[in-house]
Design a protein around this nucleic acid. Structure first.
Lengths: 166, 166
DNA sequence: TACTAAAAAATCGTGAACGATTTAAATGGA
DNA sequence: TCCATTTAAATCGTTCACGATTTTTTAGTA
């Protein structure tokens, strides 16, 4: 531990003591990739009048509706503090309806409107256009997606197991 | 195309016409994974008085400083509209200094303070703690990181090639 | 030198994102 | 039946993120 030279690989025993460089952090790779995806989607979604999180929300709703805010939150990994204002904006743009569940007045049911369902057609072009932006071939994409899914499952477990530490 | 049954695999020719489900979107896997990472870091960073983007910024500055706002933006993939207020908050917390470059008064040089450099010690524990949260083994992590890096390079090219379409 | 163009950061407005709290409704005993 | 507990969504305050614009400084050129 006397040499202090900077090499481009981790030069500490086994993930000990030293802090990896920014570019060596998996979290930063995920952060960058996600941000780039969002930026690539933006110009494609703009003609549809959707932001990227709104697009994900519509994808969830096209798949299955009506759903409560909570169910939607589970599907998207977001809480009501994020979803409520987002859904109000979608409602304001005429793409979804929000109504209290008569059977349980605590719940709010969200559903695409006619216009919201119609938007699905335009989304096909978005989906198709995005397929062109990847440098990875089909097998690599599948493999990456599979690995990410495993990572996500692990991270979910970790975050459920240790919500915080005091 | 007369059967309208929903199956849990893609039931269209070859990525044509149909919109994949939310969970089949790579962008959503990246979005979820990145969000989960941020949430896992939060309780670890809170004692250090850092948010996650602030932590990434400090990682960049610990690696090399002083840097201009623009250089930092290139490293982090953020623009001055995001970085300026973030850096002002770091400055307000005594972790970095911001000063105009005497040689070019347009530039602002950012540098960790003594306190900002000292924080690096506390960050070692954060870095170590995060290593425990992954369900992937060392080789898988390396491979995932490598694939993500290639994806990021491709997405950067794509976003440079087609900033928008009108 | 004067004047336009380019570059760097800051500013503004909008929309996520989330912790913490609040409000309202349903649930589960005693 | 009554009341404490739980649950669901909404609200509030702070921070991130970015497109578009503005301000200031430098560079380039006639």
């Amino acid at each position: 531990m006397t040499t202090k030279q900077t090499s481009d690989v981790i030069d500490v025993p086994a993930g000990f003591a030293g802090i990896p460089k920014l570019d060596q952090h998996l979290c930063f790779a995920l952060y960058s990739a996600s941000g780039l995806m969002t930026r690539l989607y933006r110009p494609l979604l703009e003609p549809l009048g959707l932001t990227y999180p709104q697009y994900l929300t519509m994808l969830a709703l096209w798949e299955h509706a009506p759903r409560t805010v909570g169910e939607l939150g589970d599907a998207l990994g977001l809480d009501s503090a994020t979803l409520t204002p987002l859904l109000k904006r979608l409602e304001g743009n005429g793409l979804v309806t929000r109504r209290r569940d008569a059977a349980d007045e605590r719940r709010v049911l969200v559903e695409p409107t006619q216009q919201g369902r119609a938007l699905r057609e335009g989304a096909k072009a978005v989906s198709a256009a995005m397929r062109c932006h990847s440098p990875l071939d089909g097998d690599e994409l599948k493999s990456l997606h599979h690995t990410l899914t495993r990572l996500i499952d692990g991270l979910r477990e970790a975050s459920a197991a240790a919500p915080d530490r005091d």
